[in-house]
Design a protein around this nucleic acid. Structure first.
Length: 294
DNA sequence: AATTAGCGCAACCGCCATTGC
DNA sequence: GGCAATGGCGGTTGCGCTAAT
């Protein structure tokens, strides 16, 4: 017996939502909160599928949704994030406050993707980057197993979102940067963060996604992010990787991997990630491993 | 003015992961 | 551990609007 549908399709409205439906849904969620989507339509008196209600709420009615007018900063960030993450719109949307995955996906398909496709000046994508890599391996069995994929001469790609433990970017970052500025070393990329490794069962650990998925942004995030002097994407060429099992891989992209479950480690942008006090395997520099997306 | 083509976007669909029993 | 329910995601579709012919 196959799975039952999420809801009966009979007698349900489809297509565009009416103002009345929006009002009913909004009022119901304001009172009862989100969740229980399957039962929501019946309880709220809506002739809609639960999934449809969820989508309508998340993409349109939810408070704080920004609509239209993707700014240049946002567009640039979308491109960079897409270069790293591929078509993982929800992850990308998570870094753009007020934007939904659907909106970003649409924007990509109708604007950026077309510009890239047409070779519009100023629009490019890292050779062999996440998007192209993902497309080439999409049907691979490994995708279903959430394993890492590597493409010769390209960045690494994880094909599905994975939960990671928390990363905290501490106050020391600003202090550290202040010190750098005072000493006039000219290295504004230095950034100290505390990386809390995932449980040992989560073997596919990646610091970039870890950082991405837990990074909290304030109003200055975009401007600060775009001001950073970061390496070119080509820097990912020629690096070697050492995987969890200590077997060197032939892939060209560096990859940080903890050997075991552990507490907290420190790293600097621009510095080697290897910390003798921490059981990380030796890898390439942090900037060369995964932050070429910026 | 009528028709057609292109575009943007909301919504739907199917698959997969997670959760709860 | 197995199964069903639920939630979430990415790909795709189709409608409505607008510009071009």
């Amino acid at each position: 017996m196959g799975r039952s549908p999420c809801c009966s399709k009979e007698g349900l409205n489809k297509g565009a939502w009416t103002a009345m439906e929006d009002k009913i849904l909004t009022e119901y969620i304001n009172i009862h909160g989100e969740g229980k989507w399957r039962h929501l339509p019946k309880r709220a008196g809506l002739k809609r599928c639960g999934k449809s209600c969820r989508l309508r709420w998340l993409n349109y009615l939810r408070p704080g949704i920004k609509r239209g007018n993707i700014t240049n900063d946002e567009e640039e960030l979308i491109i960079r994030l897409h270069n790293l993450l591929g078509n993982r719109w929800s992850l990308i949307a998570g870094r753009l406050p007020g934007r939904t995955d659907n909106e970003i996906k649409n924007y990509w398909n109708t604007n950026i993707g077309r510009k890239l496709q047409n070779g519009t000046p100023g629009y490019s994508i890292t050779e062999g980057g996440a998007r192209s890599t993902l497309n080439t391996v999409q049907d691979d069995q490994n995708v279903k197993n959430q394993e890492w994929h590597y493409d010769k001469g390209s960045c690494l790609v994880q094909t599905k979102a994975t939960r990671w433990s928390k990363v905290t970017v501490s106050d020391e970052i600003s202090q550290h940067n202040d010190e750098d500025n005072k000493s006039n070393v000219g290295d504004h990329n230095k950034m100290k963060a505390f990386l809390v490794s995932p449980p040992s069962s989560e073997s596919n650990y990646d610091p970039v996604l870890n950082f991405m998925e837990n990074l909290e942004m304030d109003g200055n995030f975009f401007s600060e992010l775009l001001k950073m002097d970061l390496p070119e994407s080509s820097s990912c060429q020629g690096n070697k990787i050492v995987e969890d099992n200590d077997n060197p891989s032939s892939v060209d992209k560096g990859y940080l991997s903890p050997k075991s479950s552990c507490e907290t480690t420190h790293f600097h942008w621009g510095d080697s990630l290897y910390d003798p006090n921490f059981d990380f395997l030796p890898v390439t520099t942090f900037t060369e491993t995964g932050f070429d997306w910026l």
